[in-house]
Design a protein around this nucleic acid. Structure first.
Lengths: 261, 261
DNA sequence: AGACTTAGTTTCACATAATGGAACCACAGG
DNA sequence: CCTGTGGTTCCATTATGTGAAACTAAGTCT
């Protein structure tokens, strides 16, 4: 769960500390971080000081706690709008949401995890950051599996090594073997399902967004509940999903290679 | 525009580079950054490498460009949900949006700039990151002035020093003196206006969200156009706005001091 | 009150890690 | 084949970050 790669240099350590704070999900005291951190007191202290001074962390004087700073929100806005598929995909997602009336997700792969970058909610209108920026497991979500299925051999192994294979529900694919078999099936039919593998009662159908050379740069899904619909009904949407995914891929490639003359 | 404070240590420099990339607003080549950066080639190069390796930047192999990485989006999600007023204020904003049918903004002050952390759009349903994370000038927006008005002497001077006082429209308050006079008026009446100071045709009424001890932790505003309504009509909402702001302040304080037993 | 934790901050001799000038590579034009 | 531009690597120098330990400021117990 903690730092995976060797944290290169001071910058790496500082960012590692940022992650530690983020992981707690609420303002943390110095000592909260001290335990479970491999850094000695003084080092951790200095890193926190630096980050705070830089606006990446916010220090609450009264409570003596650190929380993630708003500078991150500013940066993320820029990141989201330049590096994610969301701005490009927006009109297509709108279209899809309108058509289906179901919840739509747009996700990308980040460090072996599913990162949701946009969402259209069935009923509720707005969700903001509360959904964009969220992460989820790759091995047991529709969008996750759709992307994994189109990873190259080496990449897949690396990502599989990072999966927890925690059994969320009885349906969860809880071994690399089961997952690999499923991925082959996904490649076969071109779309992925979530058969209540992450949450009971929640099902979805997802398709990858593929570049010309067959790499998945993201995935979209339509999600519903077993109460409202069936997998078969969702699968009926697969063609439409693929169509949208192709169009998103097209604008993404156009955008990545604007003019080279 | 570039780094203001002395970038402390390597971490500061790295974050400065991040900002530089963010400022460009699109994928940048190494040489794009090299010009206008005070760092020597090799240093800049290494910083970019480190940031890329850390997932804070994404390097596009084909194009040879750097863009902000998705790790930032992940972090920002955490920042937004723990350090911003948005999650707490959400129900109240919903209420306000429903009532008024106008565009609602929730903003906080970050390094002398207005940082929008949530928004309810009059017509359009969803906006996501595209609005949260956006920054704007403090001296010529309703929410900005509402917050500045409740800064202490020292804090205000520091923030004023950071303002550009660019004259966006004929109405823009373009000197510290005019601004200070306006802030006094705002303190007097308890709410701020934007009289087309930032964009022609756009007006708004804003109120600060004040802690028990009179510090502004944020601001909310209702925005409209001169075509649709008048300042006077917006001012009629001020009471309602203040009411909502008070309630947000209350939950914010409750939340900041949950249980001390 | 006095002794004793607990939590956070500062010091300082030391070594690692960042620095940046310069050399090097790769490739596109001429 | 030479020349220029954009990017990457070297390596001696030194600035920076390191972390054990000492210190301070609050509690807490007796």
């Amino acid at each position: 769960m903690s730092s995976d790669a060797v944290a290169d240099g001071t910058v790496g350590k500082a960012l590692d500390v940022l992650d530690m704070v983020a992981a707690r999900g609420r303002p943390v005291r110095f000592s909260d971080l001290q335990v479970g951190s491999s850094y000695p007191k003084a080092t951790l202290y200095r890193l926190l000081q630096t980050l705070t001074h830089q606006g990446m962390l916010a220090y609450d004087d009264d409570r003596g706690t650190y929380a993630l700073g708003l500078r991150l929100v500013r940066l993320a806005h820029a990141a989201w709008s330049t590096s994610s598929l969301a701005p490009l995909a927006r009109p297509y997602l709108d279209e899809l949401a309108e058509e289906t009336g179901e919840t739509i997700h747009l996700a990308q792969l980040d460090h072996g995890q599913v990162l949701y970058v946009d969402k259209r909610n069935a009923s509720k209108p707005v969700e903001m950051f509360s959904s964009a920026g969220k992460v989820g497991p790759a091995y047991c979500t529709g969008v996750g599996k759709a992307m994994l299925a189109y990873l190259d051999e080496g990449g897949l192994e690396a990502v599989i090594a990072r999966q927890s294979f925690h059994q969320f529900t009885p349906e969860t694919l809880d071994t690399p073997e089961k997952l690999k078999a499923e991925l082959a099936a996904i490649r076969d039919r071109g779309h992925a399902f979530d058969r209540e593998e992450h949450e009971p009662g929640i099902i979805c159908c997802a398709v990858p967004i593929l570049t010309r050379n067959g790499r998945a740069i993201g995935a979209i899904s339509v999600t519903s509940t077993t109460a409202r619909t069936s997998l078969a009904a969702l699968e009926a949407q697969a063609g439409r999903l693929k169509d949208i995914a192709t169009r998103i891929a097209a604008v993404a490639e156009d955008w990545r290679f604007p003019e080279q003359g």
